[in-house]
Every structure is written in C-alpha cells, then in structure tokens.
Amino acid sequence: MSIQHFRVALIPFFAAFCLPVFAHPETLVKVKDAEDQLGARVGYIELDLNSGKILESFRPEERFPMMSTFKVLLCGAVLSRVDAGQEQLGRRIHYSQNDLVEYSPVTEKHLTDGMTVRELCSAAITMSDNTAANLLLTTIGGPKELTAFLHNMGDHVTRLDRWEPELNEAIPNDERDTTMPAAMATTLRKLLTGELLTLASRQQLIDWMEADKVAGPLLRSALPAGWFIADKSGAGERGSRGIIAALGPDGKPSRIVVIYTTGSQATMDERNRQIAEIGASLIKHW
C-alpha cells in the first residue's frame, strides 16, 4: 500500500482519535458579512469528516447552483462504474471539434489522439474542462443518470439537468442544476469515506481534487503551510461562485467545507476574496 493510499485508508482512524471539535460562531459572522459585502445569498456548511456531524452552517438547506462543483460527483459516478466493471479508466475516447464547448483548455489539445477516461476526469476536476465533463456525462448516460446515481446514494436534493455550459445559467428560483450545502457536503463525505467506492477509487477521487489547479484564489489562499486540501470550485452566471473541499491540518483532511453564493453584482475577484476570507476565519478558529 502506498503512503497516499495509507493516508486515505486511515482518515477515519486518525479522526477518531482527534480531540473533540467545537464550532466557532466567528466564522458564521464572516459568512454573514460576506453576504453584506456581496449583496447576495451565501450558503455555508462545515462537517466533521469522521462523524458527519454538522459543526457550523448557514442557509444549509437553500438551493444554490452547483456550477462546476458537480464534476466531482460526476467522476465519482464514473469511478463507481469502474468498480462495477462497467468502465475502464484506460479506455480512450475520441471526439471532434464539434464536441468542444466553451472553456476546454485540455480537451482542445487532444482532438487528434483523444483522451482516456482517467485523463478526462483529471481534466474535468483539476482544470474544470467543460468538454471533458460533457464527454464523461455521455459515458454514464447524461445528466439524468448522474441525478439517479445521487438518488441511489441517498441524495434526493442534488440534481443535474443540463450539460456544460448551460448548467451554469443560475436563474433565480430555478431548481435545475442545483444542490443544497448540506446535501453536497453529505454526498461528498460519502464519496470520500464511505463504502460506495473502493479504496482505490476513493484515493483516485481525492487525488484529482488535491491536484486542483484553478481554485488557488479561494480556500487555498488562506491555508497555512502543512495543511491538506482537496477541492473543486465552480463559477456561473449572475454572480455565482462555489467551492467544495476536504481539508485539515497535519497533512490530512478532517472536515468537509461547502460554500456557495449566487445573485451578486460583485466582480469575480471580490467573490473570490470573500470566500478566501471565510476560509481564513475557519482556519483561525479551527
């Protein structure tokens, strides 16, 4: 067993022997301040990774656009098919120029040779490549099948209805392509620590998230040296922004954090800054 596999296998073990965790309302004060600064709703939840206990939450059962955070769930569904012998990570998928959609920095470079399922998941999570996500959605049967996968996990809230990039439209009061912070946090925890996926697939999923290259201005910008984070960000229309993450000190994750916002007129930089400040408060009061 590799060191990384050992780390993920012992996530519940280490967490069980940690000192009790206590909620700190100071972080919620910052979440509410972010709402004021952005002029928009902000949803927040913080779960203990081992027990699933909610440590703090704000608007945990209000719907927010998922945006690209759905790509972690998508690759979880792909990995479940791999575990069941219905898919192979090494299978190569070929596609054409007509398949390319807006923001496809990886797939646009491989029109000639195609990409493997493993490479597509890596591109979808680490670079948020939209064509990679659409190609992977095709392998599982489309958005409705991802929703069905989530329902089978016990998540009857999260739903995907459309493809990239239309799913980022974020129309107010439109339930399409949305989740709730509580539902997303619980589902992410199941994917990373539950028995739904094999140990190898859980490790692969967290490795992809740990290698995320496009979430630097968010929670990662607030992390002290030595902290662990595996995350996936999302951005959408109407001032929408979000991030889902597993993080913790001492090089291992111990909490799940989900943050979503929508309806702001603020710039992307300002949305990023507010999420980073929430992260800084979380870490300060850990």
Score class of each variant (00 low, 15 high):
24 H>Q: 07
24 H>D: 09
28 L>S: 13
28 L>N: 02
29 V>R: 04
32 K>Y: 08
37 Q>A: 13
38 L>M: 01
39 G>H: 11
39 G>N: 15
39 G>S: 02
40 A>D: 04
40 A>Y: 08
41 R>G: 07
42 V>L: 12
44 Y>S: 08
46 E>C: 10
50 N>V: 08
50 N>W: 04
52 G>C: 04
52 G>D: 12
53 K>V: 13
53 K>S: 10
54 I>D: 07
58 F>M: 00
60 P>C: 05
61 E>P: 05
63 R>V: 07
66 M>H: 02
69 T>M: 06
71 K>N: 02
72 V>A: 11
73 L>K: 05
73 L>A: 11
74 L>C: 12
74 L>R: 00
74 L>K: 15
75 C>I: 13
76 G>K: 06
78 V>K: 14
78 V>T: 06
80 S>T: 07
84 A>T: 10
84 A>K: 04
84 A>E: 15
88 Q>M: 08
88 Q>A: 14
88 Q>L: 13
91 R>E: 04
92 R>I: 03
94 H>D: 08
94 H>E: 06
96 S>C: 00
98 N>E: 01
98 N>R: 00
99 D>A: 07
99 D>Q: 11
100 L>I: 08
101 V>H: 05
105 P>H: 02
105 P>A: 08
106 V>C: 06
106 V>I: 12
107 T>F: 15
107 T>Y: 14
107 T>P: 13
110 H>I: 14
110 H>F: 00
111 L>V: 01
112 T>M: 15
112 T>V: 13
113 D>G: 00
114 G>A: 10
114 G>F: 14
115 M>W: 15
115 M>S: 10
117 V>T: 04
117 V>A: 06
117 V>P: 13
118 R>K: 00
119 E>S: 15
121 C>F: 07
121 C>Q: 03
121 C>M: 01
121 C>A: 03
121 C>T: 08
123 A>W: 15
124 A>F: 01
125 I>D: 02
125 I>G: 01
125 I>H: 00
128 S>W: 11
129 D>K: 00
130 N>L: 12
133 A>Y: 03
133 A>N: 03
133 A>R: 03
135 L>T: 12
135 L>W: 05
136 L>E: 12
137 L>K: 03
137 L>M: 15
138 T>P: 03
138 T>W: 12
138 T>H: 09
138 T>V: 12
139 T>K: 05
141 G>C: 14
141 G>T: 15
141 G>V: 08
143 P>C: 10
144 K>T: 09
145 E>P: 08
145 E>W: 08
149 F>G: 06
150 L>F: 13
152 N>Q: 14
152 N>W: 13
153 M>R: 09
153 M>V: 09
156 H>L: 06
157 V>Q: 05
157 V>N: 06
158 T>D: 06
159 R>M: 00
163 W>R: 11
165 P>L: 05
169 E>M: 09
169 E>W: 05
169 E>D: 02
171 I>L: 03
171 I>E: 02
172 P>T: 12
172 P>E: 10
174 D>Y: 04
174 D>K: 02
175 E>I: 12
175 E>G: 12
176 R>W: 11
179 T>P: 01
181 P>A: 06
183 A>N: 07
183 A>R: 04
184 M>Q: 12
185 A>G: 04
185 A>S: 02
185 A>M: 13
186 T>N: 02
187 T>L: 11
187 T>C: 09
189 R>C: 11
190 K>H: 15
192 L>M: 08
192 L>R: 13
193 T>F: 06
195 E>D: 07
197 L>E: 13
198 T>Y: 13
199 L>W: 10
201 S>R: 08
201 S>N: 14
203 Q>T: 11
205 L>F: 03
206 I>K: 14
208 W>C: 04
208 W>Q: 05
209 M>L: 05
209 M>T: 09
211 A>S: 04
211 A>D: 08
212 D>T: 15
214 V>Y: 13
214 V>R: 14
214 V>D: 14
215 A>F: 04
215 A>C: 07
215 A>Y: 09
216 G>Q: 01
217 P>E: 03
218 L>A: 09
219 L>A: 06
220 R>P: 04
225 A>V: 09
226 G>K: 00
228 F>I: 00
228 F>T: 02
230 A>R: 10
233 S>W: 11
234 G>F: 07
235 A>S: 02
241 R>K: 08
242 G>K: 04
243 I>D: 02
243 I>P: 02
245 A>I: 09
248 G>E: 13
248 G>R: 04
249 P>N: 03
249 P>H: 07
250 D>A: 05
251 G>F: 10
252 K>Y: 10
253 P>Q: 06
253 P>F: 15
255 R>S: 06
255 R>M: 13
256 I>A: 10
256 I>H: 07
257 V>A: 06
257 V>T: 06
258 V>E: 15
259 I>P: 06
261 T>S: 10
261 T>G: 10
263 G>Q: 15
265 Q>T: 11
270 E>F: 04
270 E>W: 14
271 R>P: 06
271 R>W: 03
271 R>I: 09
271 R>A: 06
272 N>K: 00
276 A>C: 08
276 A>T: 10
279 G>S: 06
279 G>K: 05
281 S>H: 06
282 L>K: 13
282 L>H: 05
284 K>D: 09
285 H>T: 02
